[in-house]
Amino acid sequence: MDTPYAPHSSPVALTAELDAPLSRWLWLVKWLLVIPHWIVLFFLWIGFFVATVIAFFAILFTERYPRALFDFNLGVLRWAWRVSYYSYSALGTDRYPPFSLGAEPGYPARLDVDRPERLSRGLVLVKWWLLAIPHYLVLAFFTGGMRAGLWSIGLISLLALFAGVAVLFTGRYPRDLFVLVVGLNRWMFRVVAYAGLMTDVYPPFRLDQGGAEPPSKSLSGYGS
């Protein structure tokens, strides 16, 4: 039986809560604190790629994304979003991310993807490369559009660093900057889920800012 989406604008729901107060100095050393997570995520992203390749053939022949693979890839996205939010894609919390593929509802950064009942055989052939190219160009700017020496600095990280400097000198994270940074991350994770074949719903070219997903009309055709 088909069930409607939850009331948000995309099958990919990314939310965040801004912690207060934030440490004025902790963000300066988070690069060191997240090294264990970066090591784990390196291997998890390899697993994500392998699971996506297997899911590609499963969808091509059965129109279904195997639940175990979907749950694993969703877990990788959740883990990545928590680490990103803690570190230099947002700096929105000082709570250390858990080493977990689960939902972790108590953590201030959360992500979920509605699992589709069926996926298009035709779209699976083209959506991850051809259809997603416009979004890839946008994300290149979000994540690595500026270069300083050997380092690539994207818009998201640059804005997060501005927020860190603001916290250092004022003790406060500018609210307008927070909603923008979360919106940019939301766009990025929607595209990753689409390119990872987890949904057929094309990511909107829309910057949905803020910590909560925007409400929208329910869409039918997807189940849990």
Rank of each mutant, 00 (worst) to 15 (best):
H135G: 04
L74W: 03
P134Y: 11
V138D: 05
P204N: 04
T93D: 01
S84M: 01
D2M: 04
G171W: 10
R64P: 05
R110W: 05
V83Q: 05
K30E: 08
T15I: 00
P116D: 10
D71A: 13
L207K: 03
F72D: 04
V50Q: 08
A103G: 02
G196D: 07
M188Y: 14
T143D: 06
A140M: 06
D19Q: 15
D208Y: 15
I39R: 02
I35G: 05
M1L: 09
G75A: 11
L207T: 12
L123W: 15
I59W: 02
R95H: 05
T170G: 08
F49P: 00
R78S: 10
R190A: 09
F57G: 08
K217S: 14
V182E: 04
G145F: 06
M1H: 13
V165M: 12
Y202W: 00
V167T: 14
A109V: 13
E17V: 12
V113W: 00
V50F: 15
I54M: 12
M188C: 08
V182I: 15
L32R: 03
Y65Q: 00
A103H: 13
D94I: 02
G223V: 07
W128G: 11
F72P: 02
W38G: 06
V34P: 05
L26P: 09
P21K: 09
M1F: 11
V126I: 14
Y222D: 02
D94M: 02
Y222M: 06
L60S: 07
T143S: 03
T170K: 00
P66E: 06
T93Q: 01
W151I: 15
G223F: 07
L131M: 05
A109C: 13
F43D: 07
L74Y: 09
K217Q: 11
R175N: 04
H37M: 02
F42Q: 12
L14A: 08
S87V: 01
A160Y: 00
A6H: 09
T3F: 08
P11K: 00
I54H: 10
Y86C: 07
A212N: 11
V201I: 07
F43Y: 14
T62R: 07
V192W: 13
V83R: 01
S216Q: 14
S10K: 00
V192D: 09
F49D: 05
Y85T: 11
L18Y: 10
F56T: 06
H8G: 15
V192Q: 12
L111P: 10
G210F: 13
I35F: 12
E117M: 12
P134S: 10
L69H: 10
R110Q: 15
Y202K: 00
N185R: 04
F205W: 14
V53W: 09
A90R: 01
A58P: 00
L77E: 08
F61N: 01
G210H: 13
F162M: 07
D176K: 04
L41Y: 03
L219G: 08
S216A: 15
H135A: 12
L28K: 08
D176I: 02
P108A: 10
G144A: 09
L41K: 13
G211Q: 03
D2C: 05
R147D: 13
R147Y: 12
F205D: 12
V126F: 13
R82Q: 11
P7F: 06
P174S: 07
K30L: 03
T170Y: 04
L69N: 05
L130V: 15
L60M: 13
